[in-house]
Design a protein around this nucleic acid. Structure first.
Length: 937
DNA sequence: ATTTGCGTGC
């Protein structure tokens, strides 16, 4: 038989019949040699039948009609007699199956599959095409199996294995278990085929855990089964289990397949199991597998995911052959760790080679830039891709959308949305969710909702994005309704859903409701986390409820939740808001202890806290200690100097900032103009105001104009101020008129004051300060009739003169002094001390400034009124209780009066102490008889 | 066999 075409091949030709269009094959079939074959196998009746009945040439085209079921069965019987000849050939089996099915005999087709597969090395998966066409085949196979089983046929392990494969295919959960029982009964469960089939059956039908259990219970497990177990565990992302299996395999010197090595290295990447990964790398080298490109590729990825970029690079450099995946792996490694230059270098090297970058290459670059926060570059790369003719896919688009969200570029976002629709990417879950998120974050709630409604699969991310959008905008009822709809849709709100709600309620001032939500989270079986608490704390802080925010901060820690950098920044803001220097210091310590001071936001918040708590020196110390100061920290420190009237320092810091390459923004200019304003630096102020739009392309906003009005007005240039207001391109708001009113009062210009006041009464009718300023001005000018008129106006608006108060902190207690109230327990002693101080400073030249009292009373009475000013009481108490040389810190809710200011200066000289007063607008740092404000406020 | 693996809350 040697040298002749094998029998089974000839049969394939026969069975395939008319489909054999290949002329060469036809001629082969018709050749004398082929005919010679038939002589050898005359025992094949159908073959003989066909040849004899049709004559050779005619028969070629007419197979279909010629074959009867009977002749098919005869051929089949012939084949079974010679199992060795066709056992490893699935083409023949496939032809046989097709013919049986075409002839309407599914059962025979099924038995060919069952028995044929069992006797051959043919893999079940290679029949998937046939199964697609004949969907009833698997069930028939199981019927045949069952039938033969009942008839008492003794199956071998292979038949059970095939039956299990079929059970897996049709997801017949129970038959598979029954077969498993039979297999155990017949002690066939140590067969490798059966074991693999069992693993696959349990994995598909009962889950990976059950599969692992069955694996553990197997008597003797061959290497292939171990490899299979690793494969399935990696598929189910059971990384730990996969690694355990491999460890045991290595321990018992089993053969680890290349594919298994690849899969386990993937596990090491995901798990960040560097030691394991290195060990497998050693294994790879020991068995000489380092020439395998896929193994090296996955090694690069594994090292990259473990942050070992040098090792990743070393593997890449050691490779003799590289494919596109190798390049993608190394580019991804560098890009994802922010080594963008290295990533681009490799990208260019790749481009100059013969291999072409693909979408994955570009996506690696995109996600690297996205992670690195280089959002503008992401958009540039997307444009480059289009130039190179690479169509961005869903993953590229998600990077693009994220960048657009961060940059706040809604038009670009809409452009991407358009692209998404045109390229049918909107069915991608990630893309869809990102688009919803983008519109929700850019205040386009209606569009967000429309996109959301069109999503094919609405996952929790999409729901949360939308809910967060509504909640953020203050549409809290809509947000609550959405949570209800989400539950109706069968999605349980998670901690993020709740946090969005906590944050919305808290941010919009409903802090009790937000706290209530925190309790609801507990009731729903979840635990409020640091973000939930921070949402509550931050909402309080933003709404000026600083005390509450600090209380919740304590409560959070009592519940065992550790604050993070955001929490710390937020509570530092609250401390600053209350000027609680002690508490602020405590939190500063806490952040140092937890290594959070490296966080830019925390560092900036610390600076801000010290500035607002009256300790610009501490702020400056922290500022100088930061290695890489950001725009925000510079802005903060410049603003700090501004608040203390340290104009020159502010200006020099501005120049320092520019010299190290940080570009000032609108906030910087607000800060620097405030600094000029608080130090009376008119020329410098003008210079900066001109410079901001000319040199830095920052268009002045209302707050910048307001600073200028304040600066010019207070310096006494009232006509210029008026002129400036007339010429400004923006409609003057309350801050502008307020600044004009203040300046007019200082310089006793009733004309401008009245214009300003008239506007203010309209713009902010409820602000009593405007009425009071006007009354003061009339009192100063002895225009008591006008005084009474404003008073009436104020009364009829239902307003009262705001309560003036001051406070100072001694140890951990805040001592509060309110105007007209003598409620402090040490009140008598304080007045006694104050009288003594006043008589002592009078000897140094102090003269009470009775012009500060706007009441129609005589000077002796006025002097008494001056003594009751709350800041004097607070300063006196501070002096009485102070320890060592610590400065006395007083916080006051309204502007300090000129008499108190003078008194404080004298006291600082008399008692050689520092006094720091925070009034309604700024700080006064008094020492040795001088004030940091240089008497300009 | 191998590479990108993304999206929600402070």
């Amino acid at each position: 038989m040697d040298g002749l075409p094998p029998f089974h091949q000839t049969n394939v030709l026969l069975l395939k019949g008319p489909r054999t269009q290949n002329p060469e094959l036809r001629s082969h079939f018709l050749s004398s040699r082929a005919l010679g074959d038939t002589d050898t196998f005359t025992a094949t009746p159908a073959y003989a039948l066909r040849l004899s009945s049709s004559g050779v040439p005619a028969g070629v085209g007419g197979f279909n009609g010629v074959y009867s079921l009977a002749s098919m069965k005869m051929i089949h019987a012939q084949m079974i007699k010679m199992p060795g000849k066709w056992s490893s050939d699935d083409h023949l089996a496939k032809s046989l199956i097709r013919h049986y099915v075409n002839l309407g005999d599914d059962r025979s087709a099924a038995s060919v599959l069952l028995l044929g597969l069992a006797r051959s090395n043919v893999r079940w998966n290679s029949f998937s095409e046939e199964l697609k066409d004949f969907s009833q085949l698997p069930v028939r196979i199981l019927e045949v199996f069952d039938d033969l089983h009942r008839k008492g046929m003794v199956f071998d392990a292979r038949i059970f294995a095939v039956a299990l494969r079929v059970c897996t295919y049709v997801l017949d959960l129970w038959l598979g278990v029954v077969i498993h029982a039979c297999v155990i009964k017949r002690s066939l469960d140590s067969d490798a085929h059966v074991q693999r089939a069992l693993m696959n059956f349990y994995e598909r039908c009962w889950g990976i855990e059950r599969a692992n259990r069955v694996f553990n219970e197997m008597p003797k497990r061959e290497d292939v089964v171990w490899n299979e177990a690793v494969k399935l565990n990696v598929k189910h992302e059971q990384w730990v289990r996969a690694l355990e299996l491999l460890r045991e395999m290595q321990y018992s010197c089993m053969k680890v397949k290349g594919t298994t090595t690849v899969r386990v290295l993937q596990a090491c990447g995901k798990l960040k199991a560097l030691a394991q990964g290195k060990q497998i790398h050693a294994h790879v080298l020991r068995f000489g597998m380092e020439s395998s490109v896929p193994i090296c590729n996955v090694l690069i990825s594994m090292y990259a995911k473990n942050g070992e970029l040098e090792l990743a690079g070393a593997v890449f450099n050691s490779m003799e052959d590289r494919n596109l995946t190798s390049w993608n792996s190394i580019i991804s490694a560098y890009a994802s760790f922010g080594f963008l230059d290295d990533a681009w270098n490799h990208f260019h090297k790749l481009k100059s080679s013969t291999i072409k970058p693909d979408i994955v290459t570009w996506n690696c670059l995109l996600s690297g830039h996205t992670l690195n926060g280089s959002y503008e570059d992401v958009l540039t790369i997307l444009r480059m891709m289009q130039i190179y003719g690479i169509q961005p896919n869903s993953r590229s688009i998600t990077c693009g959308l994220q960048s657009v969200i961060e940059l706040g570029l809604l038009p670009h976002g809409k452009e991407i949305h358009n692209y998404v629709i045109r390229h049918d990417l909107d069915c991608d879950v990630y893309v869809g969710t990102s688009i919803v998120d983008m519109y929700a974050k850019r205040d386009c709630l209606d569009i967000a909702r429309a996109v959301f409604n069109n999503l094919k699969s609405k996952n929790i991310f999409a729901w949360n994005s939308l809910i967060s959008g509504y909640s953020f905008k203050g549409h809290l009822q809509d947000a609550e309704n959405l949570v209800g709809q989400m539950e109706d849709a069968g999605i349980k709100p998670d901690i993020v859903t709740w946090n969005s709600m906590v944050s919305g309620y808290s941010m919009w001032g409903h802090t009790e409701k937000a706290l209530d939500m925190i309790h609801q989270i507990k009731l729903s079986g979840l635990t409020p986390n640091v973000i939930s608490w921070t949402a509550l704390i931050s909402g309080c802080s933003q709404n000026g409820k600083y005390r509450e925010s600090l209380e919740y901060f304590i409560q959070m820690q009592e519940e065992g939740i550790k604050p993070n950098a955001v929490t710390i920044s937020t509570v530092l803001q609250s401390c600053g808001g209350l000027s609680l220097l002690q508490k602020g210091k405590e939190i500063h310590c806490l952040s140092v202890k937890n290594g959070m001071t490296r966080d830019v936001c925390v560092a900036t918040a610390i600076i801000d806290m010290y500035n607002k708590s009256g300790s610009w020196r501490s702020a400056h110390k922290v500022f100088k200690r930061i290695h890489k100061n950001s725009l925000a920290s510079f802005n903060c420190m410049i603003m700090g100097f501004a608040m203390y009237g340290l104009g020159k320092e502010a200006i020099s810091l501005f120049h320092e900032m520019c010299s190290i390459g940080i570009t000032p923004d609108a906030i910087t200019f607000t800060a620097i103009l405030s600094a000029c304003k608080n130090s009376g630096l008119v020329n410098e102020g003008w210079e900066f105001f001109d410079k901001m739009s000319r040199d830095y392309n920052v268009t002045p906003k209302i707050e910048h104009y307001s600073c200028m009005v304040d600066l010019l007005g207070r310096a006494g240039y009232l006509d210029e101020t008026w002129d400036f207001i007339q010429k400004m391109p923006l409609k003057p708001d309350a801050t502008i008129w307020g600044a004009l009113l203040c300046s007019s009062r200082i310089h006793e210009n009733i004309e401008y004051a009245e214009i300003a006041a008239k506007n203010l009464y309209e713009l902010e009718p409820d602000n009593s300060a405007n009425y009071v300023l006007m009354m003061n001005l009339y009192a100063m000018s002895n225009r008591w009739k006008d005084f009474d008129h404003v008073k009436e106006l104020m009364n009829s608006a239902g307003l009262k003169n705001g309560q003036a108060w001051s406070w100072t902190q001694i140890d951990h207690t805040v001592h509060h002094f309110s105007a007209g109230q003598s409620t402090h327990p040490d009140c008598g002693e304080i007045y006694f001390e104050l009288y003594q101080l006043i008589s002592q400073i009078k000897k140094l030249g102090y003269v009470p400034d009775v012009s500060c009292v706007y009441q129609d009373i005589d000077d002796v009475e006025k002097e008494k009124v001056l003594l009751s000013h709350t800041e004097k009481l607070a300063i006196t108490y501070g002096l009485m209780k102070r320890k060592g040389s610590a400065p006395i810190r007083v916080i006051k809710n309204s502007r300090i009066c000129s008499d108190c200011h003078t008194v404080a200066k004298y006291i600082s000289m008399l008692r050689k102490c520092e006094i720091i007063i925070k009034d309604g607008v700024r700080f006064h740092h008094l020492s040795k008889g001088n004030c940091s404000c240089k008497d300009c406020w």
